[in-house]
Structures are given as structure tokens and as C-alpha cells.
Amino acid sequence: MRFGIVVFPGSNCERDCYHVVDAVLDSPVRYLWHADADLSGVDCVILPGGFSYGDYLRPGAIARFARIMRAVEEHAARGGLVLGICNGFQILLEAGLLPGAMLRNRSLKFQCQDVFVRVETADTAFTSMCRPGQILRLPIKHGDGNYHADPRDLAARAKVVFRYCDADGRVVPEANPNGSMDGIAGLANLAGNVVGLMPHPEVCAEPELGGTDGLVLLASALRYWEER
């Protein structure tokens, strides 16, 4: 499976994503430029974290109109894999590939810490190797992760993949770092090929970096692709 990582002006996690796919997953990977017209034949698109276009207007609001996003939307519609991490998740929301929107963190603080998330479904490309209820420890670093959606729109168009929880897997307010509705940390479309999440699995995939819980997302994608 070939991975492509989209670089927008203001992306800042693209190298971490590249490194993990290349060195840890040992899979072919390339950068894709926001102004590209096509995806150069990649099978899995990663929209990395950062502050595309300075987060001006709203995070992701301008990036979602970048030229490459039309190709990403077509790729998603064909069942191609798409993973949006942090700002990448915000871009997926703005693009309407996933429902809802992000508000400022309830605390108004930029949150940079490890969190626990509970895997709510293994029925997505990026959690196929997880079991429901599994707890992952992943880092977050964001100021706008306070997810909001119309509950009916959410239920009609997506499934919740990750919820912020405590170390025992309980979804409680104290474990919610940003005020996100129902503790939502990540979503998938109903087909499960498009996933967005606020935590950063790419910087949590090697023991040297303090944890390996993030690797399961990309390993799942590999297996999902091989077994499709």
C-alpha cells in the first residue's frame, strides 16, 4: 500500500507521518503538495497536523478548498483510505467528509499532553486491528478540539471511533481535555474508510518516543488494505 501525505502551507506534522510510514511501517510513502491536481496513485492519504493557512477564519476552512482536496474527496468516495490527524481532522470536517465542526477548547488553552482514548469500533480501516473498548494512550496538541455536531447529523453520517477516557476506560468529564461533545476524539464515515482524530498516533509509534499505541492505526490500515 502506498501512502501519500498532503503538505499544506502551515502543516507541521508531515515529517513525523512520513517517518513512521517509511521507517516503522516500512511502506512506500511520498509527499503530496496542496496544489497538486491528483494523488499520484497513492492508496492511503494522510492529512497531517499543523496550522494550515494559519488557521485563519477557522481551522481547516481554507485548506479544504486547496486544489488537492477535490482529488481527496473523489478518493474517499471510491473507498480509498483517508486519515486526518488533528488539523487534518479539522479539514475533513470543513470539507464535509465527516460531520460536525470544531470549537475552541473549553479551557481556551492549547492542550499538549497525553490522553487516553477508548476505541469504540473496530469497524474502520484504521482500527481494524483493535478491539472495541481497547484503551490507547496518545498525545494531543491542539487549541480547537472541542467537537460539536447536531446529534442526528452525526448519527446519520458517521460513527464515533475514539472517545477521551480515563486510564480505566471510563468516559468522564475529567478525562475530556477540550470539552468535546460526548467525549468524541475521533470519527469515521459510515463506510469506515475515512477517519479523523485529534490525537497524534504518528508521534506515538516507537518506544524511543515514549509509546507505541499509535502504531495500531497505521498497521490496521495496512491489514485492511491487504484483506479488502
Partner: peptide, 12 residues
Amino acid sequence: LKAGVLDPQGAA
């Protein structure tokens, strides 16, 4: 922001 949508900036 729509009525009913939490406004952290406003609250602060």
C-alpha cells in the same frame, strides 16, 4: 456562533 453553541471566548 449559533444560539446554544458553547462560546468559550465569550465565557472567559
